[in-house]
Amino acid sequence: MKIAVCIKAVPETDTRIRIAADGRSIERSDIKFIVSPYDEFALEEAIKLKESKGGSVTVIGLGGDEVPAILRDGLARGADDAVHVSSAGVATDDPLIVGKVLAAALKQLGPDLIFFGKHGVGGDNQQVHAVVAEKLGMPQVTVVTKLDVTDGKVRAEREIEGGIEVVEAPLPAIIGAQKGLNEPRYPKLQGIMQAKKKPLATKSVADLGLSADQVGDAAAGIRITGLSLPPARQAGRRIDGDAGQQVAELVNALQNEAKVI
């Protein structure tokens, strides 16, 4: 089975966000990039499937200089090859455009199963997998916590409010991985050494048969016109006394000051 995994390079989750001089993006100079946490579940599931059923795993990342290192990370965990799609000329603020470009890259590969994270942390869009599914005309199952692949179809459990939906879909299909799907492995030294020798191709949008006006700012559906830090939340009031007094005063404050109970 031919499996692809889209992994996104995102700022480490404890990064302190600073706004760049343009006022609509983040200051990237000393950010450390990691594989988006949900994409780790995607990657793990893909590698496990390959181990049990055979086949290959290709990792794909769209972006700039931050991408090759996270693709090597994917290779070190067990992927076979990698494709870095350069974001030069791509309106990456719009998940519609990101999805279109990834769809074009995936079409060239022709996988049976394509894994995504349910959500790329940082951008927090939760869209790209659905865009790819639509562009490739494939069924999508998102927020997946359990997956079986047999007889040319997937049977997945997806998390919804207050329950789980059991979903079946024929291959090729798109899966969006949620935490709980598996326990991701981390690269081992041997894997890291092997990863250096595995193929990592770099492609431009032109290599994918896309023209600049299909993926540039003019084609985007949305644009970010401003980015700002939230007003800092102020530390409020300490409530002292013994536990009985603290609780009495808290309840009073919640009822009469905050008026939330």
């Binding site: 998940p95 519609l96 659905a130 562009k135």
Partner: peptide
């Protein structure tokens, strides 16, 4: 932006080829 909305909206946006601001 419920479970359903998060699954459905980007699919529809892609079909209509329009931008979606989520959440």
């Amino acid at each position: 932006a419920s479970s359903m909305g998060r699954d459905l909206a980007p699919r529809v946006a892609a079909r209509l080829d329009i931008g979606l601001a989520s959440d």
